[in-house]
């Protein structure tokens, strides 16, 4: 049972943006987070603005900057779309959200705007420096997706704004990425810790670009830039990788009291999963999982 709420369904984006100007409006897309939060009375909107019908926020298409993914794109559709195929870490991450039924209901924009520190679609998007396109009555603004994430449950949306799309910049030829997460059960579960790794010219001196994004170990999903800096342009050795992980650990500070994993385990798994992802990208044999 959800609390009483005014329900409004705008016909187009303009109408929606006007409704979003109202105090206490909350956008409803797939509802897999919003409805759950309302049921638990963690979210008590004055009005639910049902944006599911907005064509302006749908579709996946090629744009000059890369691939444009509408915020209302269903997670499973985004995972299966040929245009996202090369963004391995993104499709592996998004493909691990909930279960198939949830992924046919939940939207990419919803997974982002829910602002969960463990959102599975985000690490893969951040690796590719994805952008967030935000619409309001005044027009559109585009920000880096990483800066769009402000804290647990908080994103950079002001009153009257909606996330319209994310743009994945073109993936470079020969680049590869990988997503790994740890969960308490193999069946449906939230990530206890997640790691996405991107590599381009892996370990080639002067050219190597290794990027790492982490989930569920910081207030938001974020890039591990201190570790990336250690690796950038360097020949990859086991020692260097450990050094890089030591460096990124400075920013890894999982909260205590989580029911999913202790900070100690999460930190261990960050190291293990980064190494596993790199080994996988290198084509090395990794352990069974």
């Amino acid at each position: 049972m959800i609390p009483n709420v005014e329900y409004l369904k705008p016909k187009n984006l303009q109408e929606a943006l006007e409704l979003m100007e109202r105090e206490g409006s909350v956008a409803l897309a797939g509802g897999t987070d919003v409805i759950v939060n309302m049921r638990d009375e963690r979210l008590l909107p004055k009005a639910l603005i049902d944006i599911k019908g907005l064509e302006e926020l749908k579709g996946i298409k090629e744009v000059p900057e890369g691939v444009w993914i509408g915020a209302l794109e269903l997670v499973q559709d985004a995972v299966e779309n040929p245009l996202t195929k090369q963004y391995t870490a993104f499709i592996e991450g998004a493909g691990s959200i909930g279960c198939l039924e949830i992924r046919y209901r939940a939207t990419i924009g919803g997974n982002i705007c829910n602002g969960s520190p463990s959102a599975d679609s985000l690490p893969g998007l951040l690796l590719y420096d994805a952008k967030a396109v935000i619409a309001s009555k005044e027009g559109e603004r585009t920000v880096s997706l990483e800066s769009f994430l402000l804290g647990p449950g908080k994103v950079d949306l002001k009153k009257g704004e909606l996330l319209k799309a994310v743009i994945l910049p073109k993936a470079k030829e020969g680049s590869a990425s990988k997503y790994y997460r740890r969960t308490r059960v193999k069946g449906m579960d939230l990530s206890s810790v997640s790691v996405a790794v991107y590599a381009e010219n892996l370990g080639i001196e002067g050219k190597s670009d290794i990027r790492i994004a982490l989930g569920a170990v910081m207030p938001t999903v974020a890039r591990a830039r201190k570790g990336e800096a250690v690796l950038y342009g360097q020949k990859l050795t086991d020692e260097l990788l450990d050094e890089a992980i030591d460096a990124l650990m400075e920013d890894v500070n999982p909260r205590k009291g989580s029911l999913r994993a202790t900070p100690e385990y999460k930190k261990k798994m960050v190291r293990v999963l980064i190494k596993k992802a790199i080994s996988e990208i290198k084509g090395g044999v990794s352990c069974e999982a």
């Binding site: 308490r184 059960v185 193999k186 069946g187 449906m188 579960d189 939230l190 029911l259 999913r260």
Partner: peptide, 15 residues
């Protein structure tokens, strides 16, 4: 603390 199926985990077919 975990009086829900988010944090009271039971195994799935995958397990």
């Amino acid at each position: 603390r975990n009086n829900n199926l988010v944090d009271y985990k039971i195994v799935g077919i995958e397990d």
